[in-house]
Amino acid sequence: MGVRTWIEGWPVYRQLTGTDPLGRGAASQSARSKNLTARTETADSMARSVCPYCAVGCGQRIFVKDGEVVQIEGDPDSPISKGRLCPKGSASKSLVTSDRRQKKVLYRRPYGTDWEELDLETAMDMIADRVLAAREETWEDRDEDGRPLNRTLGISSLGGATLDNEENYLIKKLFTAMGAIQIENQARI
């Protein structure tokens, strides 16, 4: 930065020499203010998404910079929402980026009084073991009249109304194939 530019950067210099002698506008604008730009404009990518709260299905644009979500706002293209969001939809960035989100698997052993951390793969193995054990223990081949039942009533599940159709499809497919029928979600509540 040359001396001249440096001096021209002084608000007082600009105030005295420019069009803003009272120094309330152009002359007072700081370099930061001058260079401000919306972070949506400088994002690396933008994903077209849908709000995860209620069932109106408002369009969202998710802006990402350096692998982090930097803004989530309404998608003006959506004929449903026309770019608008309610307070919950508007809080979606907080939902996704919150420090309060749980990012580690936690495990509470029987009769335990606190959480312990657990490795993801270990947890998956343990859950698979328990599913098979519960299934074996409670399996019903046939009813008392000999008609097929082919099921377990030892396993339950609740959830799905905030999940994707593709996820629900796999959940229902897997549970049905292993004979678990007690699959429910918010639609019953």
Binding site: Q71, I72, E73, R84, L85, C86, P87, K88, G89, S90, A91, K93, S94
Partner: peptide, 12 residues
């Protein structure tokens, strides 16, 4: 009175 304005402002 949904307060979307309040939240959208704070998020941005």
């Amino acid at each position: 009175g949904c307060k979307a304005c309040e939240v959208a402002c704070k998020e941005w």
